[in-house]
Design a protein around this nucleic acid. Structure first.
Lengths: 139, 139
DNA sequence: CCTTTCTGGACAACTACGTTGACCAGTTTA
DNA sequence: TAAACTGGTCAACGTAGTTGTCCAGAAAGG
């Protein structure tokens, strides 16, 4: 419920700004592309825990909105390199700021030290059960 | 990720026992029926955050597997009262035990006091944002 | 080299699980 | 006692994933 409530709080803010109807999958895609500049559709699919076909659809949407572009791979003629456009980059920055505000409100509630402890405790569990869980919820 | 990992751990155990392919929605339904004995389809739908049609389908499945039954309402001729069968009840007990084991392993990792603190901190956030979040994830 | 095998990606058809819409029988209100 | 409301079902549709098939380019083996 906490996870849901936080996500909803963020999406409510973004939706109120009249953005495209972005879903969590888009957010995870943004973050993944932000760090790296050699991501293929297959890489993204593995990261999201979906098939490459599904990843392809997601990218197609984001490309249509001008957040992501596909450039030809420098050496591999089959592959395309995914990247954020300037518009995509500024969107991520904005979303990160809003997310920080959500966390801040929580920190006010329970204390920054408790929030930090919580982060560590959650991480401990995830790492103990294989390092990474799939992002996509079951239900 | 922690939420996902815990859910997956539980479902892996249950699936290994050769159970029907139960999904989180079924688990939430079980818990809801366990506490009360005057639940209608509409009540369940509200609890799960889905339409009554969707709730009806879920109940139909559970009824088919013999976990849930629908009895006529004592006074209201339109309504049906949902309830767990003995089989359903024993399943819930079993699942609860397994869930406790999952939590225990976490408690060993970070300490029982930290787990308790975490529970409280999560609850604090959920209650601050409206008391209850929808169970069903967005993605 | 040139053939065989492998891999990134796209298109199409299908499935799961929800939705909206229409309806009926029974209950409540006026 | 007629009108409005409510619990439940059936049917049609939508969304977001899946599997299945294929192609062009890359890697591997004689």
């Amino acid at each position: 419920m906490a996870y849901r409530a936080m996500t909803e709080e963020l999406h409510a803010v973004l939706a109120a700004e009249g953005r495209e109807p972005l879903r969590p999958a888009h957010g995870y895609t943004f973050r993944f592309l932000l760090d790296r500049d050699d991501v293929s559709i297959v890489d993204l699919a593995a990261h999201l825990g979906v098939t490459k076909q599904a990843a392809s659809k997601i990218v197609a949407e984001l490309e249509g909105w001008g957040y992501v572009d596909r450039r030809p791979h420098p050496t591999d003629g089959r592959s395309r390199v995914l990247g954020l456009t300037p518009k995509g980059r500024s969107y991520v920055d904005h979303a990160n700021e809003q997310w920080a505000l959500v966390e801040d409100r929580w920190a006010e509630l329970i204390g920054a030290d408790r929030l930090e402890a919580l982060r560590n405790d959650l991480r401990a569990y995830v790492e103990a059960s294989g390092g990474r869980a799939a992002l996509r919820p079951v239900w």
